[in-house]
Structure formats: structure tokens, C-alpha cells
Design a protein around this nucleic acid. Sequence first.
DNA 1: GGCTGTAATGTTATAGTATAACGTTTCAAA
DNA 2: TTTGAAACGTTATACTATAACATTACAGCC
Lengths: 165, 165
Amino acid sequence: MSKRRILVPFKKRTHDHAECIDSALVSAQSSCERQGLRLTKMRRRVLELVWRGHTPVKAYDILEELRKEDRAAAPPTVYRALDFLLNAGLVHRIESLSAFVGCGGPATPHFGQFLICRECSAVAEIDAPAIARALVADAEALGFHADRQTIEIKGLCADCSRLDP
Amino acid sequence: MSKRRILVPFKKRTHDHAECIDSALVSAQSSCERQGLRLTKMRRRVLELVWRGHTPVKAYDILEELRKEDRAAAPPTVYRALDFLLNAGLVHRIESLSAFVGCGGPATPHFGQFLICRECSAVAEIDAPAIARALVADAEALGFHADRQTIEIKGLCADCSRLDP
DNA sequence: GGCTGTAATGTTATAGTATAACGTTTCAAA
DNA sequence: TTTGAAACGTTATACTATAACATTACAGCC
Ligand SMILES: [Zn+2]
Ligand SMILES: [Zn+2]
Ligand SMILES: [Zn+2]
Ligand SMILES: [Zn+2]
């Protein structure tokens, strides 16, 4: 219980988010090149919109943005791009919110473990391999072969719990 | 990392499921009495339908069943009953499937940790408090106050992995 | 460069999940 | 028996996601 990595931290409200977007797009580019995947203009644009902030983004919010640029944009466009980004490991789906967040460590495959603030909606991504392994082991003990896991924690981030009570 | 309990095991294909339903309804009854909650006819009926088997049940599947009994049944009826059952701790929502399963241990509050077979859809519910605590601790280390967690593991159950490969 | 096949995107329609809003009934407590 | 809140009925609509088929873009070949 120890080598927990923080893939996406809770950010200060004042941080330079343009830099977050930039670095995500650069990682995505090289990640795709390495895997022989095509990060097309549309996919890149959708990824950029997912990284609009550090809160989960809904498919139809992305669609709304796209429609400002192309009046005729339709749901399949968004969902196809999101499918690609999910498979490429560039975004994660937050199941409990039907929404998407950018992945903070696309270089190495993982399922994502998320802390979600119910007040400000900020999301942090951590990687706690010990926990993932413990779950796999518990499953294995029942003869179950785990190949995917969803871990989503809800609560209050440090900022919000300071203010809220 | 050890005192894992099995709240709902993977069942033999031949087990007496009427008994599962019965025992769930009896637990539910006493659980509601203890908490001063009203397990009405409708809520009881919906709970019974959630326990139709050991696979997750969709809200609209429940609705379809209800409509066999009352032609006019509508979505809010189902969702209201499900909300009650969720709050009463009698069912869990599987976020990654938008579906519901009966809770195997409604007497004590917990969030549920699920093993979901992608082949036969069977679901087992376990309670591994050590893992829940480890997640809370990891969150706490970041100043995050966790109050709820979603843990869903996908893979192949023992039966299906024996046959599949 | 021009061909060619596959991958990506466009387009229209529809399926599936969930809640808002307001009216009516039920039922336990006063 | 009144009465007020909780439960349920009813209608409409919002939100999430995919099916199916047409068109365009683009890498690999000649
Ligand atoms: Zn940022
Ligand atoms: Zn990630
Ligand atoms: Zn059973
Ligand atoms: Zn199975």
C-alpha cells in the first residue's frame, strides 16, 4: 500500500491550464505515433475539448462546441472520436457520470482510479497498483478472471472541504 | 488484506432461485421495519423483479414486466421505486451497465464491490473492507474526503473461463 | 501523378436511459 | 374524521447512445 502515483492532481484554481491542454495534446500525438494510430483533426479537436478543464465533460457538451464550428455536427461524430480516444488510452469514461476526462498518463496502459469532488466537480486521477492488484487477487480467489476495473471515489476535494462545513 | 466477505456468490446454474428471492424479500421487509421505511407493494414488486436472477436488470426491463400487470405503468414508477431501494440499501446500481442488482447484505451499509462476467452477465458482490479503507486512505492523503465509492470488476466467471478459451 | 481499397467522417433516424412537473390517491397520526 | 405528507399516476420531455448507409479522405501501390 504505497507506490501510489498521481496522474492528474487537483489543480489550483489559478494554474495555467493552457499548459495542461498543450501537454496533453503533445503526449497524445506521440502516444499515437508510437502505436501507429491516426490522431486526426476531429479526434484532436475532441480531445482538446475533453481537456477544456479538470472536470468531466459530457458528450453532448462536446457536440455543442463542435456545432459552433460546424452547424451540422451530429452525435456519431462525437461518440466515434471518444471511442477512439478511449481505445487509444487518451481519455477515460467516468461511468457514474456518463462523462469523460483526459488521461494523465497515457504512456502506460491502466484503467484509471478517480477522485471526484461532488462540490466543484474537479477530478483527480491516481494510479494505485497495489489496490488494483488486491482486487484482481480477491477476484481470482473466487475463480474470476478480471480484465478490467472501474474505480470511482466521490467526496469533497481539499479546497471544497475547507469551505463547505 | 483478508477478511473479504462474499455477499452474493456466483451461483450454480441449477440452484433454487426461488429461495434467493424469498430470502431477499424477507431481509428487505425486516430491514425496512428496522429503519422505519415503507416497503410498499410497488417497491416490493420492483425489488422482486430486480431479483429475477443474478444478472443486472435494466429499469426498462422492469417497466416491461410491470406493464404486463398494469398496461399504464410508466418510467417514473420504476425509477421512484429504484431510488427508494437504492437509498434503503436493498439494491445497488451497476454504473458501468446502467443496471441494478439486489444487495446481498442489506443489514449493514456498504457501497458494493462487484464482479461482473462479460460472458454470462452473472454478478457477484463482495465486501473487501481493506480495499475500501485503502482507497479512502489514499484519497485522504491528497486532502480528499471520500464518502462514496464505485468498484466494478469485469472479466470471466469461473464457469465461463472454463468453457471460453 | 492517377488508381484503389480501407479507414474516417457525414447524415438521418431511432433506440435506450432518466427526470420534470403536476394531479390523484393512500395512509398514519392527530 | 380530518389532514397533511408521502406515494403513486400521468404526460411530456430531456439526455445518452447507436444503427445504418452515404460520402470523403488518405496511405500504399502502379
Ligand atoms: Zn489544468
Ligand atoms: Zn489515465
Ligand atoms: Zn439465485
Ligand atoms: Zn460467466
